[in-house]
Design a binder for these strands. Structure first.
Lengths: 219, 219
DNA sequence: TAAATAATTTAGATATAACTAAAAAAATAT
DNA sequence: ATATTTTTTTAGTTATATCTAAATTATTTA
C-alpha cells in the first residue's frame, strides 16, 4: 500500500494531467500541494522507483498505468466519502472537501465498496465530478468551462474544477448552484471578465472564476 | 490537535488505567501497542510536556484531566465509527476494529457529531462498550467478567474486553454472541479453566478467554 | 548566441516516531 | 544486605516527508 503523501501526489498528478496535459512540471505540483519544488523532486524520485510515474530530470512527470490505477482509487474514495457526507450526514457541498481529504486515506477495499453500495452506486459526487467504479471506470461527463465559451452561448452548470470551500462559498454568495442554466452575455476584452446571466440574475465573473465552472449541453 | 500516535497513546493509557488501575507502566503500554519500552518512554515525555499525562521516571503514568478528555474523544470516535460500520454498512462485529482504528483519527468535531445524530445517538457500540457523548459522558455499564464469577452464578453476555477480530472470530466459532445467557458450571483448579453453559450448549474456556467476557445481571 | 532569468535538482538540515544496545534504577531473591 | 533479575531510561540510529540554500539545467531575452 501507498503512504498518505504518495496517495496525495498520485491524485494531484492525475488531476494536473487532465487539466494541463501530460508531463506535469515540478513547480506546478509544488504549487497545488503547497510544498516546495525540492520536496516534489524528492517524492517524484520515490514514485518513480515504485513505478508509479515516468520521471525524467527537468522534464516533468506523468503517471504510469500502475500510478493511474492508484490515483483512481484515491479519487474514488474521495468522491464517495464526499457523497456520503452530503447525502447522509447533511453537510453542504462547500463543507466536505477537507474532511474527504482525510477519509480518502483510510485503507480498506471492502469499506469503500460497501460505502458505494450503501450510497446506491452514485455516478457523480456533490461537485459534479464522476465517481470511478470499483474497476476505475467513470461515466462520460463532457463539459465545457465558461472561459472556453463564446458570447451568446449557454449551458447547464453541472460541475466545478475547484471544490475548495473558499470557491464554493463564493458561488453560494453569488447564488450560483449546480443545475442553473447560464448564458454568456458578454466578454470584456480589457480584463477577460465574463458577463453571465442565469434565469434569476446577471453578474460579472473574473476569468479565473470562469475557468472553474463546468457546463453541459453548451450551444 | 494531537497526532495519530499521540491519540493512540491516550486511548491505550485510558484503557489500561481502567483495567489495571492508575499509574500504568512503560512495559504494559509497550506490549499493548506492539512497540518497545524505549519508544514508549520517548512518547511519555512528549505527552507529559503537553500536559496530557502525569509522568515520573520509573513510576509509570496516568492521564491528566486534559489527557482524559482527549482519550474520551478518540474513544467516542472509534465506537461511533464501529457502530456505523455494523449498522449502516453491514459489517460483522469481528470486521470493524481495524477500520475504526483508522477512522478514529479523522479530525472534525462536526463530522463526529453529525455521525452520532445519523446513528440516532447510540449508547453502546457493537462490542457492548459505552459510547461517550459529545461531553465525554457515558451510560453506566456495570459488568462482571467471567473470571470473577463463582461456580453456579450466571448472567447475560453483554460485552467483550478484547475486540480484535481474532478473539471475536473465536467467539463466533464457539457460538457465543452478545445477549446469550451464560452460567458458570465449574472451575478447574488445575489450570483455571471455566466450564460454562448457554441455553444451547456447554463448553470449556481458558482463563484468558474468561477474562474478556463481560456479563450483566450476574447472580 | 550570449546573458539573464526561471525552473529544477542537489546537499544538508529538521521533526516525528519508531528502533537497538547499553546504562541505570527498581524489584526480587538469596 | 547484597546479588541477581527485571524494568526503565538514555544514547545513538533509521525512515518518512518536509524544509532552506546553493548549484545546476533550461528557457527567455537582448
Amino acid at each position: 500500500m501507498y503512504s498518505q503523501a504518495e496517495e496525495n501526489y498520485l491524485k494531484t498528478i492525475y488531476n494536473l494531467e487532465n487539466r494541463y496535459g501530460s508531463d506535469v512540471s515540478t513547480n506546478l505540483i509544488a504549487s497545488k500541494t503547497n510544498t516546495k519544488a525540492s520536496s516534489v523532486t524528492d517524492m517524484l524520485k520515490k514514485l518513480s522507483a515504485k513505478n508509479l510515474v515516468q520521471y525524467r530530470k527537468y522534464q516533468g512527470v506523468h503517471l504510469t498505468e500502475l500510478g493511474r490505477k492508484g490515483a483512481l482509487k484515491v479519487i474514488r474514495k474521495h468522491r464517495l466519502w464526499e457523497s456520503f457526507l452530503v447525502q447522509k450526514l447533511n453537510f453542504k457541498w462547500d463543507e466536505v472537501h477537507d474532511i474527504a481529504e482525510q477519509l480518502e486515506h483510510v485503507k480498506s477495499e471492502v469499506l469503500i465498496d460497501k460505502l458505494d453500495a450503501f450510497l446506491k452506486f452514485p455516478k457523480l459526487d456533490p461537485h459534479g465530478d464522476p465517481i470511478p467504479d470499483a474497476h476505475g471506470r467513470t461515466i462520460l461527463n463532457k463539459t465545457v468551462v465558461i472561459s472556453e465559451m463564446k458570447i451568446g452561448s449557454a449551458g447547464v452548470f453541472v460541475g466545478v474544477r475547484d471544490s475548495s470551500s473558499e470557491f464554493l462559498q463564493y458561488l453560494n454568495k453569488k447564488n450560483l448552484a449546480l443545475g442553473d442554466r447560464i448564458k454568456v452575455i458578454d466578454i470584456e476584452p480589457f480584463d477577460g471578465s465574463y458577463h453571465i446571466e442565469t434565469r434569476t440574475h446577471r453578474l460579472v465573473i473574473t476569468n479565473s472564476v470562469a475557468d472553474n465552472l463546468c457546463l453541459k449541453n453548451v450551444k
